[in-house]
């Protein structure tokens, strides 16, 4: 196969996983620019392996594993810094929605992203793989290099922490509105 065809085949196989790899990168480093760099490094490392005829059985777990390994080794210092709450706002506003509802929705989403950032990194990564990436806990365990029981515990603790924290914040918001 010519180099051009091989690279196009790589793109066809991997471009569907960009959101997942970005989500993963985003949960390992605190600055969006660093996350984009990590995604690019992941794709280059994957391309190199692809050209070397190392083809995965499933693309997503393969890319996730590369991203996790690169993230651990190259961004360890930044990941250890005190967590900054990311300020980018996710704009998925529905134009038909009532403006007040929309504002509350945006606040809730910011709270949610902030709550995600307060989780320990291992819980954040485990949740991203299982709940966003649709990995089985066995696949996530392979990607993270940890026993499956550890992944189960991280996933559940992460879910529980989000649920508890967000319900507390929503309770406070409701009290604030009815005052």
């Amino acid at each position: 196969m010519f180099g051009h065809d091989r690279d196009e085949e790589f793109l066809r196989a991997t471009m569907g996983a960009v959101d997942l790899v970005y989500a993963l990168a985003r949960r390992m480093v605190d600055r969006p620019e660093d996350a984009q760099d990590l995604v690019q490094e992941t794709y280059l490392a994957a391309l190199r392996a692809w050209r070397d005829h190392r083809r995965p059985r499933k693309v997503e777990p393969w890319l996730a594993t590369i991203c996790l390994n690169l993230g651990r080794s190259r961004f360890r210092a930044s990941a250890r810094r005190p967590t900054e709450v990311p300020l980018e706002r996710i704009d998925r506003a529905d134009p038909a929605q009532d403006p007040e509802e929309r504002a509350l929705d945006a606040v809730r989403r910011d709270e949610l992203v902030a709550a995600m950032w307060r989780l320990p990194q291992e819980q954040r990564v485990a949740l991203t793989l299982v709940d966003l990436g649709g990995f089985t806990t066995a696949e996530a365990a392979r990607a993270m290099g940890t026993p499956r029981g550890t992944v189960l515990s991280r996933v559940h603790r992460g879910r529980r922490a989000l649920a508890v924290e967000l319900s507390r914040e929503q309770g406070q918001a409701r009290e604030g509105r009815t005052r």
Binding site: D7, F10, L11, M15, V18, D19, V21, Y22, A23, R26, P32, Q36, V39, Q40, Y43, L44, L47, E88, I90, R109, L112, V113, A115, M116, L127, T128, D131, L132, H156, G158, R159, R160, A161, L162, A163, V164, L166, S167
Partner: peptide, 30 residues
């Protein structure tokens, strides 16, 4: 109950890749 609520929240926390990242990756590969 907490696990279900947290799973829904985790699913809602997806930050889609920024516009332009896909194009940059394609250009990088090509």
């Amino acid at each position: 109950a907490l696990g279900r609520a947290g799973k829904r929240l985790a699913e809602d926390a997806l930050e889609p890749a920024p516009a332009g990242l896909r194009d940059r990756l394609r250009a990088l590969v090509r």
